[in-house]
Amino acid sequence: MSESFDVLLVGIGGQGIILASNILGEACIAEGRSVKGAETHGMAQRGGSVEGHIRIDGKFGPLVPPGSARLIIAFDMLEALRYAHFLAPGGTIVSNNRFVVPTSVYMQGAPVPDEAAIRERLSSRPLCVVDAEGIAGEAGNPLSQNVAMIGAASRFLPLKPASLLGAVEKLVPKKTVETNRRAFEMGRAAGERCGGGKAGA
């Protein structure tokens, strides 16, 4: 186990993972903590599977070693399963309840993954599933799903909610601060209800 609290964010290019990982990074700076991270840029972002690594209190390399993530935040449930081997023993997965079927599955006529089966295969680990789309819609901005996910995951992060919220306010466009603040708070409330084992570091 690393001395850093390692978090892996996973999803699909275009879902706002870079902004979400920036929220964690900025919150670390606000708390005066060291932090290292790495993310996917370039062509892989065109609807491909993407990952964001964040090592809270990290001092060296930016990559979370497989088997070492204390928390996985998945914006897509299929991606949660794809990256589940990054989870450390006792770590938690916070996942969106939806997933996008890769276009190639339809093109090749391959079997379409089934939500119940994905959940079943994830269930051997502490799992917290939230409806990010529902929360974001209720908060008033469908684009705030990434902030809703960070809100839901905040209970499992060794960062103060105020630091995270401060980072959200700093990073989102000014006119969306209110809806994103709501998405964070509603996400946090959903996280409190969703299971996933013990909170905090």
Binding site: E79, R82, S104, P113
Partner: peptide
């Protein structure tokens, strides 16, 4: 550790 094997790939598109 190894990733689960039988998931459909998600390449960029």
């Amino acid at each position: 550790v190894a990733p689960v094997a039988d998931l459909p790939q998600r390449p960029p598109i």
